[in-house]
Simulated scan of single mutants.
Amino acid sequence: MKRQRILLALSGASGAIYGLRLARELARRDVELTLTATPSGRLVCREETGLDLSGDPVEAGIRLAGHLGLKTAIRVVAPDDLFFASASGSAAPDAMIVCPCSMGTLGRIAAGISANLIERSADVMLKEHRPLLLAPRETPLSEIHLENMLRLARAGARIIPAMPAFYHQPRTLDDMIDFVVGKILDQAGFENSLYRRWSD
């Protein structure tokens, strides 16, 4: 059986920990995972988590795996590599997730702008009717933000805001992070037990 190909992108919104936790969970599954991050996404990741994703992509993949406690490196690609497979409709990944998703990135995707690998890959996912999951992390939301999210939802994207819940009675910060990551995995079609489900 062919391994599912997942493209995970980190943009410049706060909340890099969500993307890294998601990368760890996906890497533990039998998927072909590729990660890319915008320049501002790399800066935010370093500021918030201490992980440096800059420089040579191969070395960044090794650092990423070490940070996540994984034994094998994760493939990292440069955000301006428009020759990477996901930039072509004939080689689109099975799913793409932008987590965290800045309102700038979300707005450019909504406008059909394809200036970098993340934007072009998202454009490909929409035109090929493949799963595109966006995890915006912003507050408060302006009318422009809301209109862009509605436009993308109507185009087929799934909007999963980074909004922790409390019905599962989280006790730690990890519990709150895992709730959001679990919700994203749910929408991507991956079974998980990262949070306690609601039950009678």
Rank of each mutant, 00 (worst) to 15 (best):
Ile109Pro: 04
Met96Trp: 10
Ser102Thr: 15
Glu119Thr: 05
Asp123Phe: 02
Ser121Ala: 15
Ala85Ser: 14
Ala78Ser: 15
Ala95Asp: 08
Val76Asp: 03
Ser102Gly: 11
Leu70Trp: 00
Asn116Arg: 05
Ala115Phe: 00
Val98Asp: 02
Ser86Trp: 01
Ser88Met: 06
Cys99His: 12
Ser86Pro: 05
Gly66Ser: 08
Ile74Gly: 02
Gly107Cys: 09
Leu68Pro: 05
Val77Ile: 15
Ala65Gly: 09
Gly66Asp: 12
Gly104Gln: 06
Asp123Gln: 07
Ala78His: 12
Pro79Gln: 03
Gly69Phe: 13
Pro100Trp: 00
Thr105Asp: 05
Leu82Trp: 06
Leu106Gly: 08
Ser102Ile: 10
Leu70Thr: 04
His67Tyr: 15
Val98Ala: 02
His67Asp: 00
Ile113Phe: 10
Ala122Thr: 05
Ile109Arg: 02
Leu82Cys: 07
Phe83Tyr: 10
Thr72Trp: 12
Met103Trp: 13
Asp81His: 15
Ile113Leu: 15
Asp81Arg: 15
Leu117Asp: 03
Asp94Thr: 10
Leu106Asp: 07
Glu119Asn: 09
Pro93Asp: 06
Ala65Gln: 09
Ala91Asp: 13
Ala91His: 13
Val124Lys: 05
Ser86Gly: 10
Arg120Trp: 04
Ala111Lys: 14
Ile109Gln: 06
Ala115Gln: 14
Ala111Trp: 00
Val77Glu: 03
Asp81Glu: 14
Ala87Tyr: 07
Ala92Tyr: 04
Ser86Thr: 10
Leu117Lys: 02
Ala111Tyr: 01
Leu68Cys: 11
Leu64Pro: 10
Asp94Asn: 13
Ser86Met: 07
Cys99Ile: 07
Leu117His: 02
Gly89Val: 10
Thr105Cys: 08
Leu64Asp: 02
Arg63Gly: 08
Ile113Thr: 10
Arg120Ser: 06
Met103Thr: 11
Ile109Leu: 14
Met103Lys: 09
Arg108Ser: 11
Leu64Ile: 10
Cys101Ala: 15
Arg63Met: 09
Arg75Gln: 14
Ser102Leu: 11
Asp81Thr: 11
Gly66Arg: 10
Ser121Tyr: 04
Ser114Asp: 11
Gly89Thr: 09
Ala95Gly: 11
Ala65Met: 14
Phe84Glu: 05
Ala95Leu: 15
Thr72Cys: 08
Asn116Thr: 08
Val124Ser: 11
Pro100Asn: 13
Cys101Thr: 09
Gly69Ser: 13
Leu106His: 13
Ile113Cys: 08
Ala87Phe: 03
Ala87Thr: 14
Ser114Gly: 14
Ala92Cys: 09
Ser121Arg: 01
Val77Ala: 04
Val124Ala: 08
Met96Tyr: 12
Ile74Trp: 05
Ala115Met: 06
Ser114Ala: 15
Leu64Cys: 14
Val98Ser: 04
Asn116Ala: 02
Leu82Met: 13
Cys101Leu: 06
Ile109Lys: 04
Glu119Gln: 12
Ala91Cys: 04
Ser86Cys: 11
Lys71Gln: 15
Ala111Gly: 07
Thr105Glu: 05
Pro79Tyr: 12
Ile118Tyr: 08
Ala122Leu: 01
Ala73Pro: 12
Cys99Met: 13
Arg108Val: 04
Leu70Asn: 01
Gly66Thr: 01
Arg75Ile: 01
Ala73Val: 03
Phe84Lys: 01
Ile74Thr: 06
Met125Ala: 12
Val76Ile: 15
Gly104Cys: 01
Ala95Ser: 12
Val98Lys: 00
Ala92His: 06
Ile97Gln: 01
Arg120Pro: 07
Leu106Lys: 12
